[in-house]
């Protein structure tokens, strides 16, 4: 089968299409996923192809979307629920932090919840403080949920397919800034990207950057600039946060001795803190420099598009932070 460049958004559409084709228990529900094909166009064509019982539009009912997915999964279906923006997961706080994460464990570990919640995240388009967040850290702090954070079209497809086939609840954070990014995606419907296996996006010697989602592209851009200054950057994309592939991070840091953790979510108590703490704990003797974090700023995200860029790490900031690290 030939690989052809398609967008990150279309890769998600293909994953849904193929998995719905493969397994009649897979169904979609969310606001505007049906007739409209999704507010971002990601479920286009699926309502026509699979019908309204497998692509279910709902009212503005986040409790029901996430809690109903929990119930449907308990009843033997494989729901792929969509909250229109990742921020709206918090409207279904009880259903996501408690029911989805804990129902299996609370009931002795004998029930299974094979479900996915798709959560479009990221800063783009002036949609403000309640439509731009990347709350993966909130859920990393909640035992019982797997977390996917794809950065490329190929991973967007392969990870979503793995998520749908997983018997555990998964939150799939898809970054809206990546929707139009194109990349080669396998047409093989059995090509999955396994959870818990990070990928080295760029091989380097001097500094390791751990980045995921839309921050991978920013890191790659920075690495190109730094290469001209003879600073060689290795970029590790964990691809899933739960499970987290510390081994690939560790292998890289043993080589480079310097680590920058990069993410879009705001800095304080963000997911980078966990990675930095683990690196300090597990890789202390291999480090030649303090572990650095570069992340979103600690303020609500303003709606003014001219100000958005100041809220998450930009390429020049990554370049200067790595430059400083390389001096150690």
């Amino acid at each position: 089968m030939s690989d052809k460049p398609i967008t990150y958004a279309w890769a998600i559409n293909h994953a849904l299409d193929e998995e719905m084709q493969r397994d009649p228990d897979v169904f979609l529900m969310g606001q505007d996923v049906g007739r409209m094909g999704g507010v971002f166009g990601l479920t286009r064509g699926l309502h026509d192809k699979f019908g309204g019982e497998r692509v279910r539009d709902v009212s503005i009912v986040e409790h029901l979307v996430v809690g109903g997915a929990v119930g449907a999964a308990l009843g033997g279906l494989r729901p792929v629920a969509e909250v229109q923006f990742a921020d709206f997961l918090l409207l279904a706080g009880d259903e996501s932090f408690h029911k989805m994460a804990k129902w299996r464990y609370m009931h002795g570990g004998i029930l299974t919840l094979p479900m996915v919640v798709r959560a479009p995240c990221g800063i783009q388009g002036g949609v403000g403080a309640e439509h731009s967040q990347s709350p993966e850290g909130h859920y990393w702090h909640t035992p019982g949920i797997k977390i996917a954070v794809p950065s490329t079209p190929a991973d967007a497809k392969g990870l979503l397919k793995s998520a749908i086939r997983d018997d555990n609840p998964v939150i799939y954070f898809e970054n809206r800034r990546l929707y139009r990014v194109k990349g080669e995606v396998s047409a093989d419907p059995e090509l999955l990207v396994p959870f818990g296996q990070g990928k080295v996006r760029r091989v380097g010697r001097d500094v390791t950057i751990v980045a995921w989602s839309a921050m991978v592209d920013a890191a790659l851009e920075a690495a190109e600039i730094l290469e001209r200054e003879e600073i060689s950057v290795e970029i590790v994309d964990p691809r899933t946060l739960v499970p987290f592939d510390m081994e690939t991070v560790s292998t890289s840091v043993r080589k480079t001795s310097r680590l920058l953790v990069l993410h879009e979510a705001s800095l304080t108590m963000g997911p980078g803190a966990e990675i930095a703490a683990r690196a300090a704990d597990e890789l202390f003797e291999h480090l030649d420099a303090p572990v650095k974090r570069l992340a979103g700023t600690d303020n609500p995200i303003p709606q003014n598009m001219a100000l958005e860029q100041f809220c998450y790490p930009q390429t020049d900031q990554i370049v200067s932070t790595v430059r400083d690290l390389a001096k150690w």
Binding site: G68, G71, G75, L77, E95, H98, K99
Partner: peptide, 29 residues
């Protein structure tokens, strides 16, 4: 689960969406 007893949440009112989901699974299947 063999007797359909699917548990209880520690937060009251969480039974509504879960029962809807279970009912949806039953109806779909």
């Amino acid at each position: 689960p063999a007797r359909g007893i699917m548990g209880q949440g520690g937060t009251l009112g969480s039974c509504f969406p879960l029962s809807a989901g279970l009912a949806l699974a039953s109806k779909t299947k």
